[in-house]
């Protein structure tokens, strides 16, 4: 490529990047286009890469004529929001203490968190099922919220810790000298400064809980608390080859993720890189 001028070289790179991104994301494109094709287009002998005909029948059928799915959507929102709040509430003082305060066995705590953040969720789902059934908490949002928060809390603490470490020490010490107690200093001064970290971790917790299938599958049997993921799973079982409807439901399930992702993209990419390798 040395013979080409520099500018062309740069656009040549962009062209290759665009092509590889398109190929890589083809499955997502295929999901969306399948959802808006009529059955004849889906089952055509030569696949229609570009839909010949567009229709929104699958969306009308699954979201307007049948409004049940809206409840599953709402359930997902409740579960994901609840476990996000619960995680942040407990993880942020914990991470702050690990970052700043004197504690015995800090190294052990961090080591413990590093190990447990890797637990397979089935390892927790089984004891949770027995525990929550004994407590009569199956089919309650609270059991799903607790389960998801448990899974994301070690990760949340580990990712938040460096954020707290990077806040200048002088600020909260000045507040303490000015007569603020340390809890007030943490709440009023440290937390607002750690907002980028809280956004990163918050969006991760939300997304984890939004995508959870196993806990919801095991801890609920009642439609009134089941999230969208379980609905999609049972839907696959019932309408095995109704790809049109399946892809429409899948597309709608992805939309909140895309929105969160666009809104917090900077935080998510940064958090992923710092949190996982550190």
């Amino acid at each position: 490529m040395n013979s080409l001028p520099k500018v062309n070289n740069k656009y040549f790179t962009t062209a290759i990047a665009v092509i590889s991104t398109i190929i890589f994301l083809f499955p997502v494109y295929w999901m969306v286009t399948t959802s808006i094709k009529p059955m004849s287009g889906i089952l055509a002998t030569t696949p229609q890469i570009i839909p010949h005909e567009i229709q929104f029948q699958a969306y009308v059928k699954n979201f307007i004529q049948d409004t049940e799915i809206l409840r599953f959507f709402l359930n997902s929102v409740i579960i994901a929001t609840g476990s996000m709040i619960l995680t942040l509430l407990f993880a942020s003082p914990f991470a702050y203490a690990l970052a700043r305060l004197e504690l015995r066995g800090k190294g052990w705590m961090i080591g413990f968190l590093l190990v447990v953040q890797m637990l397979p969720n089935i390892m927790l789902a089984l004891p949770f099922f027995i525990l929550f059934s004994k407590l009569h908490l199956l089919n309650h949002f609270i059991s799903l919220i607790i389960a998801n928060a448990t899974l994301s809390m070690p990760f949340a603490i580990l990712v938040l810790r460096p954020f707290f470490m990077s806040i200048p020490k002088g600020l909260e010490e000045a507040a303490v000298i000015d007569g603020c107690n340390r809890f007030a200093a943490f709440w009023k001064i440290v937390l607002p400064l750690a907002k980028p970290g809280l956004l990163t971790v918050g969006s991760f917790c939300f997304l984890h809980a939004w995508g959870d299938l196993l806990f919801a599958l095991i801890l609920t049997t009642d439609k009134s608390v089941r999230p969208l993921t379980v609905h999609l799973y049972t839907f696959v079982g019932q309408y095995g080859t109704d790809w049109n409807s399946l892809m429409a439901v899948a597309t709608v399930c992805v939309i909140p993720i895309i929105i969160i992702f666009i809104a917090f993209q900077k935080h998510i990419v940064g958090g992923l890189a710092s949190g996982s390798v550190k």
């Binding site: 890589f24 994301l25 499955p27 696959v236 899948a250 992702f261």
Partner: peptide
Amino acid sequence: MRALILIAWMIPMVITGTLFKW
């Protein structure tokens, strides 16, 4: 483009599974 590629990782596995099943 880097951000777009990351979307594949954010999609819940249930959906990716359904999509690849198709």
